[in-house]
């Protein structure tokens, strides 16, 4: 069940599948309002090709409690920053196969522009702030932590800096 919620925000980190739209429809019905004329729904899915390499599966690791708190904080900030009615967001952890949904975001708003902007801001902020890591496994049997220094790159990927 979704956790870290208040009236208009639902967020959760889960090992369970996020592939089914229906769970978000239910939440939107619960936290959304008839004042909202737009619903934006975003899914991030496991892609076969990343940086030219054939991916076979992904393993996501999260700093559990902090990830719950950060995801909730991000969505509450979106609610304060944009003119949106409600936000629901969830992120998977554990092993994911190709095509599986790793992240899902639903935003309702009175008008479409606010929804598009909020949805985009939430996914971009997740990518720089949410304490989640991705271990990519490739078809050739190798694996790599995304964002970590790689022998090919020869240098550290410039991640976000806090403090």
């Amino acid at each position: 069940m979704p956790q870290g919620s208040d009236d208009r925000v639902r967020t959760w980190i889960t090992r369970e599948s996020l592939d089914d739209f229906a769970q978000f429809e239910d939440i939107v019905r619960e936290v959304g309002s008839v004042e909202d004329g737009a619903l934006l729904f975003f899914q991030g899915r496991v892609r076969r090709t990343n940086r030219g390499r054939a991916v076979s599966r992904l393993a996501y690791e999260a700093y559990g409690e902090m990830a719950e708190r950060e995801l909730s904080a991000i969505c509450h900030e979106a609610l304060e920053t944009f003119d949106v009615g409600s936000v629901a967001a969830a992120h998977r952890v554990g092993d994911l196969g190709l095509g599986e949904v790793s992240v899902a975001i639903a935003v309702t708003s009175a008008h479409r522009d606010d929804g598009y902007r909020a949805s985009r801001w939430i996914i971009e902020t997740i990518k720089v702030r949410l304490p989640v890591w991705k271990h990519e496994h490739y078809e050739d049997g190798e694996s790599h932590w995304v964002g970590a220094p790689s022998p090919e790159a020869g240098a550290s990927a410039g991640g976000p800096r806090f403090g």
């Binding site: 990518k127 989640v132 890591w133 964002g147 991640g159 403090g163």
Partner: peptide
């Protein structure tokens, strides 16, 4: 931040570049 003072019993996580989404 780097200047944050630590207290006994704190939980300190070393965070590599995040890669959610």
């Amino acid at each position: 931040e780097a200047g944050t003072t630590l207290s006994d019993g704190d939980e300190v996580a070393l965070i590599p570049p995040v890669a959610g989404g």
